[in-house]
Design a protein around this nucleic acid. Structure first.
Lengths: 203, 203
DNA sequence: GAGATTAAGTAACGATCGCTATAATTGCAA
DNA sequence: TTGCAATTATAGCGATCGTTACTTAATCTC
């Protein structure tokens, strides 16, 4: 009965994510979105109500798809916890095959934008950041149980520190530090709080 | 002979800094600045050329006054290097007596805003971030020379990790984490990479 | 094909943006 | 007091902002 939509919501949110990622929340204009989504403003507004509504939908999708995807992949609670934590941090600063050169976390980008985010958006951002924090803490605790943390390192201190390192990596990515350097620093941070893996460090 | 200026540049930059801090670079409008500086747009433009020029002047002042001030105070290369590093990180998330409740680093805030900062501004931001990095590394190396790092910790790895932690603290401050919690995390990170101070940790 | 339904596009609204031409202030020198 | 110089404020520029009436296009049912 109806005219078919050019794109489904997921396609739109995927592209909108890139726009917000590159330009920031207030830096991305509706005109930017129009050309990048190949969709005129009224269609965007009919679906998402406002630019802020679109941003909220983008953030929710980002948390569910990207963040949760990385958590499930790297912090599922199985396998070597140290490798998992390492993989998780490194994955955050490794551009995927389709994500051209986008480094850093959309949540951090949006969270930094202003101290007065509209409330629903701010809540979604905090939700995503907390999810990272919780997953990281769980895996680091598991590392501690297996005796994989460096001597004298308390699990929750290590977890919160690595969480800070992660956010620092995001900020550094934004500030122009290259991907190679970011991954080097990520590995350095994890190696510092964990037991040296005797089999690999020689050479 | 001329009419006296209402404010000198330093007063203006001090107040403009607060505006950019709170609202971000693109979020702070000339009208915002007009009311906060108690100065109309043409006066601002005559002195600084453009909003971007004002922002660049603010960043330069921030680096010279705030950043260098903290570096000189905490990372001067004298005294206990561990306490110094600790003090440096904590000072970054401790609001001063006059800085109402401003936490986090203006450089990080501005750096995160977009991946396409105007070039002079981007250079000033990178300069400030590098200065933090260098000062932190020097002091951590000194800690290493005095045998104050935890076993197996490489000085430069610790320095770059603490630098990331610092940026993570800034981002967390923006995301709404409270000052107490930020300082707790800052202390936790420093304690993790340094030798436990046997005289204090008992309780 | 006519009508219904739901999409997308055209065009423009008022508000605000960064910025500036111009005039009004304020001091000192003459 | 008059003129000069440096500052400030008034008022408004064109551009762009987020947003929305209104029109057109596309699909299904009948």
């Amino acid at each position: 009965m109806p005219r078919p939509a050019k794109f489904d919501d997921d396609e739109i949110l995927e592209r909108a994510m890139h726009v917000f990622w590159r330009r920031g929340l207030s830096g991305a204009s509706i005109r930017d979105l129009e050309s990048e989504l190949d969709l005129r403003a009224p269609s965007i507004y009919r679906r998402f109500g406002s630019k802020e509504g679109l941003a909220a939908a983008v953030v929710q999708r980002y948390v569910l798809e990207v963040i949760d995807g990385r958590i499930e992949k790297h912090l599922s609670g199985q396998g070597d916890p140290v490798s998992n934590v390492m993989g998780f941090l490194v994955s955050a600063v490794t551009p995927g095959p389709e994500e051209d050169l986008l480094l850093g976390c959309l949540l951090t980008t949006i969270a930094m934008e202003t101290d007065a985010l509209p409330e629903p958006l701010a809540r979604d951002v905090r939700f995503g950041l907390r999810r990272i924090d919780d997953a990281l803490r769980a895996e680091v605790r598991r590392a501690a149980e297996e005796g994989r943390l460096a001597d004298g390192v308390v699990a929750d201190d290590a977890a919160s520190t690595l969480s800070l390192v992660m956010q620092g990596l995001m900020a550094s990515a934004r500030a122009g530090v290259g991907g190679e350097e970011l991954r080097r620093r990520a590995r350095g941070a994890v190696e510092m709080v964990t037991q040296p893996s005797v089999s690999q460090k020689t050479g």
